[in-house]
């Protein structure tokens, strides 16, 4: 079963400080996969072959974190050129580019300069350039950052579509919700260290305790006091109208429900749940690092992995 991407203990240092140790360091790792940087140690294998992204560029679509196109070039010309750079023939690239422009509603703009396009349209063009050559592996570095809702949806749909077609999408994000909704496998990186690596189910199983989500309907009664009881609640994430609790060992959720109702709290929701990825992340790295990066990976269920 060939793995599309194998990152084996890669390390990269920049003028004395270690940016990546054993593959931890999102963008730098992706850049090493794409052959933009050479790893100082370790190795990268793609499609079960030695070598980075450049050799396999015809099979990889890469959307870097910092996006950009040639502002003075015509939309169609940019797409054709970028496809040619990946080894697609000029003629095939043209046909594909027109097809995609049509699909995303940009057909009328094909002969306009990139700089004439709105930000949202430019994002679409860049996205087309990433997948124009129908790659087997798509690598997206923070794909959702700066995307408007419409483009966000287009991107999500395409990711799901790729998954159904048995291809692999590898993307990094710091929005746990995206990772949780879209990923089959994930790897969480914080402060240059890898914290979690596995399928979503595995991660939830290993790191989830018993979780309860409580949502109040106005009156909260004596809830704070009950939440503070270490006999019942091990950890608390308080959002004001909503709280996510991790039960103490041996505690019964029903006890808490009873206590809450008795204290006069009105509840809109009381749910036994597995922890959110966000919660797992915060628990692992501490709230102060919650803004630090995590990276989600989605391995395909079918084709490429089977």
């Amino acid at each position: 079963m060939p793995e599309p991407v194998v990152v084996d203990r890669v390390t990269k240092r920049f003028s004395g400080h270690t940016a990546v140790e054993n593959g931890a360091g999102k963008t730098t790792t992706l850049r090493m996969i794409m052959d933009i940087y050479e790893p100082d140690a370790g190795s990268i294998r793609l499609f079960d072959q030695v070598g980075g992204g450049r050799i396999h560029s015809a099979r990889i679509g890469y959307l870097p974190e910092e996006r950009g196109l040639y502002p003075r070039m015509r939309v169609l010309d940019v797409l054709v050129f970028l496809a040619e750079a990946k080894g697609v023939s000029r003629r095939a690239a043209r046909v594909k580019a027109l097809e995609w422009l049509e699909r995303l509603g940009l057909a009328d703009w094909r002969l306009r300069k990139v700089s004439d396009l709105s930000k949202g349209m430019q994002q679409k063009v860049q996205f087309i350039s990433t997948i124009l050559h129908d790659p087997d592996l798509v690598i997206l570095d923070e794909p959702f950052s700066g995307l408007d809702p419409v483009n966000s949806q287009v991107l999500r749909d395409t990711v799901v579509d790729y998954r159904h077609r048995g291809k692999t999408v590898l993307f990094s994000t710091h929005i746990m919700e995206h990772a949780e909704k879209l990923c089959d496998r994930l790897c969480i990186i914080a402060r240059g260290k890898k914290l979690i690596d596995g399928t979503l189910a595995e991660v939830k199983h290993t790191h989830g305790g018993k979780h309860v989500i409580v949502e109040f309907d106005g009156t909260q009664g004596n809830a704070r006091q009950i939440f503070a009881d270490r006999q019942l609640v091990a950890k608390l994430q308080d959002f004001g109208q909503q709280a996510e609790l991790e039960l103490a060992t041996g505690a019964d959720a029903q006890e808490i429900l009873k206590a809450l109702v008795n204290s006069g709290a009105r509840l809109a929701r009381f749910e036994l749940a597995s922890p959110s990825l966000h919660k797992i992340f915060v628990d692992l790295v501490g709230p102060e690092a919650a803004t630090a990066a995590a990276s989600g990976a989605r391995g395909a269920n079918g084709g490429a992995n089977a």
């Binding site: 933009i36 992204g53 450049r54 870097p64 910092e66 950009g68 196109l69 040639y70 502002p71 970028l82």
Partner: peptide, 17 residues
């Protein structure tokens, strides 16, 4: 310089030496 400031260089270098 244009390729560098627009950051398109990253995409280029990942497919062209």
């Amino acid at each position: 310089l244009e390729e560098k400031t627009t950051r398109i260089i990253e995409v280029l270098v990942s497919s062209i030496r």
